[in-house]
Computed example of a mutant assay.
Amino acid sequence: MVRNPHQIKAGNGRSLKRFRPWQMLSRALFYLSVTNGEGRPVVYAVDVPYWQRVLTDDGHGKAHLYRDGEHHAHSKLPAAFPVEGGTIEVVPTSFGLKRCHYVTEEGAASRLVPDERSAEGRRARFDREHPVLSRLIGALSLTVLFTSVALIVLQIVEALAAVPPVAERLGTFTSPIDLSIGLNSLLALCASTAAVERATRLRWNPLLDGSA
């Protein structure tokens, strides 16, 4: 359950803008269809413009909630929007979202449906159409992140062991793998790409994917 530390503010009623292809890395858009007390279907949309991170003090950005296509509310992230029958929880990471779920009053949670044109929607469609290849890509992303973390840890330990007080107490340590600046930059690029791929599936691990 997400505790929302930010005040939810009322929306201005503007219309939801269609997702554009060039927004795949700068915007997330998810949908939820529920039934109100009168038995009428209501469609909610959660719009997260990643560029708004630069406008918030903590760098997490904002989430905007639309109800039947009209701007209904907005909040800094993480956000918990009350809706019919439960709450929509939205939690960011450094590379996207780790949570965009509808949690019912009984505690059951389900992920919202991503817009088909978004990065998350395209990744979900790829998973449906090519499940084996999708799993291989997911495994590759995980392997890249594991490898990156392991190599970073080795370099950190080597640097710490070079500090005289530490060396005197614990001895020196030389990493068995010595990476150049160019290889370290390539490793960082690969790790970032893998983290983005995992973010499109809303997969997140505090060790592998960084802090939220």
Rank of each mutant, 00 (worst) to 15 (best):
V34F: 03
L16A: 13
I137K: 09
S15W: 04
T87P: 02
N12G: 09
P176S: 07
H72K: 04
A199P: 01
V153F: 14
D58L: 10
C100W: 03
P82S: 11
N36C: 08
F30V: 02
P21W: 07
L183V: 14
R198F: 02
Q155V: 01
P82M: 11
T174V: 11
G86W: 00
A63L: 09
I152V: 13
R122D: 03
I88M: 06
L179I: 06
R111P: 04
S94G: 14
A212M: 10
T172H: 10
Y102H: 14
N4T: 05
V34Q: 09
L207M: 13
G86P: 00
S33C: 10
R27H: 13
W51R: 14
L16I: 06
A191L: 03
L97G: 07
T174G: 14
G138E: 06
L140S: 14
F146P: 01
L32F: 00
S141I: 01
V103P: 01
E116H: 07
L208W: 06
A188Q: 09
A212I: 04
A79W: 05
A124E: 14
L133A: 15
I8H: 04
A73V: 05
A161W: 01
A150C: 10
A139N: 10
R99N: 02
R3G: 11
A119T: 02
T147C: 13
S180Q: 08
R20T: 11
E38L: 12
W22C: 09
P176W: 02
E89Y: 00
V163Y: 15
P206I: 00
V157E: 08
R27I: 00
F19E: 05
L208Q: 08
L136D: 07
L65Q: 00
D57C: 03
V34Y: 01
S15D: 14
E89H: 05
G96H: 00
L179Y: 03
L97P: 03
L140V: 11
E158N: 08
N4R: 07
